[in-house]
């Protein structure tokens, strides 16, 4: 019995060194050499400042910007720093969920008629609360609002959206999508500078 205990301790220590220290260190060196951009969080810079990660949604509520999907964790931000990723976890018979799914308000905000179909991704909160993407329909739904707020033609904004539509990966994996942060940054770059 004593022997089993000492063997257990020695095995635990040894594998901690191998799988807990050596393995992640070797992998980190490899990642930093071969995939440095991805390994550090796929950061996006503007004017020399980090403005976000291509893989994390940010909150946008102004009419000038495309809005991401609803988040149950204010997009990982909060007054005290980081907020943990989270979905709403509201079940299929939740009264709160019924209240949250407010297609009418979204139509009004987007200045669209009462019979315009609302894309599902814009009313349902994402799993992570950080989903960086919306559907292409979700982006097109917002074009008229954004164009009006920026004084651009819907055509110009629509062309920009089309540029940012990503097809399913390798032609068949996953769903088509639009990265909201990247689209908004491109929109800022394309708009005339503020006076």
């Amino acid at each position: 019995m004593i022997k089993l205990i000492t063997q257990s301790i020695r095995q635990t220590l040894l594998w901690t060194v191998v799988t807990g220290v050596l393995y992640p260190l070797v992998m980190t060196v490899f990642a930093q050499l071969v995939f440095p951009a991805q390994a550090n969080g796929s950061l996006i810079q503007r004017d020399g400042k980090v403005v976000g990660s291509a893989l994390m949604a940010q909150q946008f509520t102004g009419d000038k910007y495309f809005w991401p999907r609803p988040s149950a964790c204010t997009y990982g931000t909060g007054p005290t720093g980081i907020a943990g990723s989270s979905g709403s976890n509201l079940g299929p018979t939740s009264a709160q969920l019924q209240k949250n799914v407010d297609a009418a308000a979204l139509r009004t905000a987007s200045k669209l008629p009462a019979d315009a179909p609302v894309p599902a991704d814009l009313v349902f909160a994402s799993a992570s609360g950080l989903d960086p993407h919306i559907s292409p329909e979700g982006a097109r739904f917002q074009i008229s609002r954004v164009a009006a707020a920026r004084g651009l033609s819907a055509d110009v904004v629509g062309k920009l959206v089309d540029q940012f539509v990503e097809a399913p990966q390798w032609g068949f994996l996953g769903e088509p999508r639009v990265n909201v942060l990247q689209l908004n940054l491109a929109l800022d770059a394309a708009s005339p500078k503020k006076p």
Binding site: R69, G87, S88, N89, A120, D121, S126, A127, D131, G138
Partner: peptide, 8 residues
């Protein structure tokens, strides 16, 4: 039904 699901 995309509540709690990711677009991608």
């Amino acid at each position: 039904l995309l509540e709690g699901k990711e677009q991608r």
